[in-house]
Amino acid sequence: MSNAVGIYAVEDVLLVSIKDDITDSDVIELQDGLSEEVVRTGARGVVIDISALDIVDTFVGRIFAQLSGVAKLLDAETYIVGMRPAVAMTLVELGMTLPESNMALSVSQALRRIRANRTR
């Protein structure tokens, strides 16, 4: 995987960090790599940190939506965290509101929510 994306396992959660110069092929690689990683590690949660991203366009937005769906099928709860205000406003303008994805303000908030949901 290119160094624009990093996947780290923290206990039973996979943390995905994305750098701002990500290309379309990096995103596609992430999509393939992440689902394999979920199965390999038996992760129960995935947290994708996009706070470094200035831009999320329709292509990247669509992949994010799919990532959440795929992880859900593999029994891992996915959170997209740290979206910048300007990115959120632009996505709304594009009509991409990611209704199927869980969103959180920060990595720690997402981790808290994953833990809370698992102990329920």
Binding site: Y79, V81, G82, M83, P85, V87, A88, M89, L91, V92, E93, T97, L98, M103, A104, L105, S106, Q109, A110
Partner: peptide, 12 residues
Amino acid sequence: LRTAAAVRLMGA
């Protein structure tokens, strides 16, 4: 509704 959608995208 758009404001609400953007707030949700931020995680709130």
